[in-house]
């Protein structure tokens, strides 16, 4: 299943903390699309997710400039 999370209003490290809390609720194989702003969140979230054993499938800019979608598989 696919889920969505918007952390564009969060400051690091809450961006990844919230991502992690959501991922914790999912089943293995589920996808979480995390919306982040450019800058620190865009760097931290994919890196931390990978470090902690999650699979970052893609990082793409959304239709809104400066807002990105990080696709993470549990």
């Amino acid at each position: 299943m696919t889920y969505n999370l918007d952390v564009t209003k969060e400051h690091c490290p809450m961006t990844f903390v919230k991502t992690k809390i959501e991922l914790n609720k999912l089943r293995k194989g589920d996808i979480l699309n995390v919306k982040v702003i450019a800058g620190e969140p865009l760097e931290n979230v994919p890196r931390s997710a990978t470090e902690q054993g999650f699979n970052v499938l893609s990082v793409t800019e959304t239709a809104t400039p400066g807002i990105y979608n990080i696709e993470i598989e549990k």
Binding site: P13, M14, F16, V17, K20, S48
Partner: peptide
């Protein structure tokens, strides 16, 4: 269920791979 404040309060524990929400 942690409250928003608790998530912030314990964020540095939650970040740890060895602890996380479960820990």
């Amino acid at each position: 269920n942690f409250t928003e404040d608790q998530i912030i309060r314990y964020s540095r524990h939650i970040l740890l791979q060895d602890v996380g929400v479960d820990g």
